[in-house]
């Protein structure tokens, strides 16, 4: 402890070793305790009602949670989510690169794509792809304005599943492009300049220098996006793709146990989104390298620190 007098000299022995300085104690926070008590009572009341209301049909939920039909639907939901995310972002990175290019044709086309696919509901787009046969009865592979190498009926090529995938990917790409573009714009232009000055080509600058740093802002937005996509795939049930929602609908159309079976889908969605959130945390931590002086702790490290701190 030190204190200064006006002349800049230390104060004369203000602290007598015999009488220690007064210790500080925190405020009592009465309001905080009252608010917490009220909220705890409300939550307990809600939980009790959910647990004891027989209409929720928890035994039925448990009975169907692991059945083959539900798990097969879940597999469809999962691969649709994965494929949509991977393909959507691949296309989105391309669109973002086009949008940021100096070529006015490329950047306008990219802009128009994003504008169009963000301006229409996903459901409408899916219905379009589902009915592609009415629009283009035959699809052919060939050179634009040139010869064709072969053709087939659209309905053979684009069944409900492919229609769903197409719709989801093209829609996802528009949003992914904006996420990636935002991330790239967030990186100091001087970084690209420094890399250019070292003799790197534009593609290399993007891949090695700009994108890895853009990931800091791309990852959280992508995490949101993947979780949104996982839940968004439930929309494919309207075009008869057997995802987890369509699977439980098929069952409750037979058994009329609507609420319990919707809960089956709900439980799976909650489990999957929770896993994704945990994954997102670790991916974010990975891309925080160099951006913070030390890496943020993992939840386990934080828990351990708290327990240790509480014990001390």
């Amino acid at each position: 402890m030190s204190s200064l007098t006006l002349s800049g000299q230390p104060a004369p022995a203000a602290s007598d070793p015999a009488t220690p300085p007064p210790r500080t104690v925190g405020s009592r926070h009465v309001g905080r305790w009252v608010a917490a008590a009220v909220v705890v009572v409300l939550v307990l009341w809600a939980l009790r009602s959910v647990a004891l209301n027989p209409a929720f049909g928890w035994p039925t939920v448990a009975q169907y949670l692991g059945t083959g039909a539900v798990l097969r639907g879940l597999a469809t939901t999962l691969w649709l989510t994965a494929a949509t995310t991977v393909l959507g972002f691949a296309l989105g990175i391309g669109l973002a690169a086009m949008r940021l290019s100096a070529n006015p044709v490329l950047s306008s086309v990219s802009w128009a794509y994003v504008w169009l696919f963000r301006s229409t509901p996903l459901l409408v787009q899916l219905l379009f792809w589902y009915n592609i046969g009415a629009l283009y009865p035959r699809l052919s592979l060939g050179i634009p304005f040139g010869p064709s190498f072969g053709s087939t009926d659209s309905v053979h090529l684009i069944g409900p599943t492919l229609a769903a995938l197409l719709g989801l990917v093209l829609h996802e790409a528009a949003y992914a492009a904006e996420i990636v573009r935002g991330g790239i714009l967030g990186v100091d232009a001087g970084q690209a300049e420094a890399a250019t000055a070292l003799g790197m080509t534009r593609a290399r600058v993007l891949r090695r220098i700009v994108l890895p740093q853009a990931m800091r802002s791309i990852v959280p937005a992508t995490g949101n996006m993947v979780i949104g996509t996982l839940k968004g795939t439930s929309i494919v049930s309207v075009i008869a793709v057997t995802d987890v929602l369509y699977a439980v609908q098929t069952i409750y159309n037979r058994t009329y146990e609507i609420i319990p079976l919707l809960l089956v889908a709900t439980v799976w969605y909650v489990i999957l989104t929770s896993l994704l959130s945990v994954g997102q945390y670790y991916v974010e931590r990975y891309y925080a390298r160099g951006a913070e002086r030390s890496l943020p702790p993992t939840p386990w490290q934080r828990l351990r620190a708290r327990v240790a701190g509480g014990a001390a």
Binding site: D188, Q191, Q213, G290
Partner: peptide, 24 residues
């Protein structure tokens, strides 16, 4: 672009704001 990139390899540059790659 590729030719210019090759020429830049022989010319080193140091910037006012350092511009070290932050993720490395």
């Amino acid at each position: 672009q590729r030719r210019i990139a090759a020429q830049r390899r022989a010319i080193g540059m140091v910037f006012q704001q350092f511009q070290l790659f932050g993720h490395m």
